[in-house]
């Protein structure tokens, strides 16, 4: 005897409470036109670790992340960071620079070169530079990112 099934319609099924998810969707990521080139740049200059961290910061750290309700990644800081990365020469005989996300939505690079601890922070409004061991702190504008990268590469 043939089995018959009722046709689906409203009220045919209902999601159990455990399956209902009200988590807001933060949007669909659309790749930028130059995203492929940027991925290559990240891999070349910061390696797989830096590349993975950048993805992590971009896609998971939404506004008000962390205990201090921190800011998500600043687009202006990101632009300056990539301009810097295009021109910087990473040291060949030491480990690749580390990449961090700051609470203000900036990006921070840290590496060692000729015994100096070099730190560069890209904020939404500019660039902050720090070099040890003499605790030198300075600032630059976003438009100076390439110039700064060349200067630090030659230092």
């Amino acid at each position: 005897m043939p089995t018959t099934f009722s046709s689906p319609g409203a009220g045919t099924y209902k999601l159990g409470e455990k399956l209902i998810n009200d988590t807001p969707i933060h949007g669909v990521h659309e790749p930028l036109p130059n995203e492929g080139a940027r991925e290559d740049l990240l891999l070349k200059k910061l390696g797989a670790r830096g590349w993975g961290r950048m993805h992590h910061f971009r896609y998971y750290y939404q506004p008000r992340w962390g205990e201090s309700r921190c800011k998500s990644l600043s687009p202006r800081a990101t632009e300056a960071f990539f301009r810097f990365l295009e021109s910087v020469k990473v040291p060949e005989h030491s480990s690749l620079p580390s990449l961090f996300l700051t609470d203000q939505g900036g990006l921070e690079l840290r590496w060692e070169h000729h015994g100096k601890d070099i730190q560069v922070e890209f904020t939404g409004t500019g660039i902050e530079i720090y070099c040890s061991p003499d605790d030198q702190e300075s600032t630059a504008s976003h438009s100076q990112a390439s110039e700064l990268a060349k200067a630090l590469s030659a230092a």
């Binding site: 670790r49 750290y61 480990s95 580390s98 990449l99 961090f100 996300l101 921070e108 840290r110």
Partner: peptide, 12 residues
Amino acid sequence: DDKWDGERLSPS
């Protein structure tokens, strides 16, 4: 992990 990448700490 946003301030530690397994090798260095972030001063921020």
